[in-house]
Write a protein that binds this DNA or RNA. Sequence first.
DNA 1: AACGACATGACAATCATTCTCACGAGCAGT
DNA 2: ACTGCTCGTGAGAATGATTGTCATGTCGTT
Lengths: 155, 155
Amino acid sequence: MTRHGSPGMEVPTPMRENRGMQRNTRQRSAILEALSRQDDFRSAQQIHEQMRADGETVGLATVYRNLQALAQSDRLDVLVGDDGETRYRQCEATGHHHHLVCRECGRTVEFLAPELEAAMSRIAREQGYTDLDHTLEVFGLCTGCEAARAEATAR
Amino acid sequence: MTRHGSPGMEVPTPMRENRGMQRNTRQRSAILEALSRQDDFRSAQQIHEQMRADGETVGLATVYRNLQALAQSDRLDVLVGDDGETRYRQCEATGHHHHLVCRECGRTVEFLAPELEAAMSRIAREQGYTDLDHTLEVFGLCTGCEAARAEATAR
DNA sequence: AACGACATGACAATCATTCTCACGAGCAGT
DNA sequence: ACTGCTCGTGAGAATGATTGTCATGTCGTT
């Protein structure tokens, strides 16, 4: 387990999933803990603010660094809003998946759609594109917000 | 056509497609002209720079304002990159469509995919979401860049 | 030609994010 | 537990895209 001796020995695979995160720190634990209590996508600043409110003492730069590192190691999902602000969320699904986000309250549902993946791949390949990747997010009004809006309109 | 007199009179529909653009100016024409000569998504700053290089005298703020206004009236397509920079492009397709973008050179192909739209709508409705909207962009390497990469790797 | 509203341009201001660098604290080996 | 080597942290400065301000220009109409 220890990596003593053996000159030229490379750090094995486990490191791959830990880019920029060799150590466990109080701050990182706190950030993950804060995220685990949220259901929607939050910006770094929102997360930081919430942590301060909860009595945690963490620097804003640290929050940014950790969110970024966690996202790179696929432990968080990222969503870049229309306003350019980056938001993060701890997801249930482990692999590739998409989101259905309420544009009013932020409530988020994860979904898989193999048909969509296949269709996109086909279209891209027909055009000669390779090494594919994509972004797909769906926005709408969840049942609760739809009801609230209907009521507001009715009066 | 003139909106004199008639107190309480509202500006009719045509205005809807012209938000923030009542007048034609040399600057706006120049911006559209510059865009028409580009095939890929460009940032406001890139466009501004190009115009200066072409001898146009336009303020950066003006470029930002016009691109924004044009995008709002659906005369331009918008793409927010991973880095948060907003890029614009003049599209062939008039209605709703998506893009296949080369992540290396920016070459862009527009495509329609009714099957995708339908599948997304179905999934969202199953979850009780209404008033839907979505973002979908596909990235990859175009034939040219793929070839270039292959050659670079080979040597 | 005159006028009034909207558009422009130079520059300041804002806002999210990243950088810098001195200091603090994991973790491996003792 | 002790030490040392690093990496991680924190405070504030710096960056960079975008937006606000406001005096001045000019479009489209009278």
